[in-house]
Design a protein around this nucleic acid. Sequence first.
DNA 1: GCGATTTATAAGTATCTGCTTATCTATCGG
DNA 2: CCGATAGATAAGCAGATACTTATAAATCGC
Lengths: 105, 105
Amino acid sequence: MTETEIFKALADPTRRAVFERVAAEGGRNASALREGLGISQPAMSQHLAVLRQAGLITEARAGRTVNYTVDPAGLAPLRDWLLRYAAFWPARIEALTQLLKEMDQ
Amino acid sequence: MTETEIFKALADPTRRAVFERVAAEGGRNASALREGLGISQPAMSQHLAVLRQAGLITEARAGRTVNYTVDPAGLAPLRDWLLRYAAFWPARIEALTQLLKEMDQ
DNA sequence: GCGATTTATAAGTATCTGCTTATCTATCGG
DNA sequence: CCGATAGATAAGCAGATACTTATAAATCGC
């Protein structure tokens, strides 16, 4: 849940793809998430463990399978870190517009 | 300038501290930035090179010294990536408030 | 020009990381 | 129970990474 854990977890492109897949198809189990990613079962398990350790996803065991979902609070430290540098953003109004659009769903 | 380069550049705590220092004391040269960080001169040079490669900072040589500043466009890909998951944020209104506060300077 | 200063680069090294295969545990259907 | 399935873990390994010392390149004051 530290900034470093979160940045490191997302720095690996394969693991970032895993996270993006969890976000897109929330609530699916590890085997289902693994389809099409071209990684072995242990690799997937290790990636999910790193993401969970970083607080980015949560697991819910259901019998034999484990369902993974995005932890709503997981990205907050990253958002907060980024907001500290909002003064450097090039198109702040555009960013606000986009944020509003994302929120207005 | 890719997402992976940016995440990797910021994943190392020492290098993130360097970036934060460039942001806080913009326009200073490498030696000035190095004070108090407890790293060697080559280490600093290497960290700055990684940050520059990621598009997070820009350098401006001034004679013997090189001044570093935050690249305004550098964090945009990170911001855009994060905004894709705004739907998962726990306190969206609070985030908007903070963003507005940062902008209203 | 010359010594000093600033920065970059080269080379070496210890540690970290992401992967693999092999194996273990737990749960399911029959 | 028993074979099959889901997932985690152990162990090993190749490559990446962050650091070091040594040195090169460029610019400064004099």
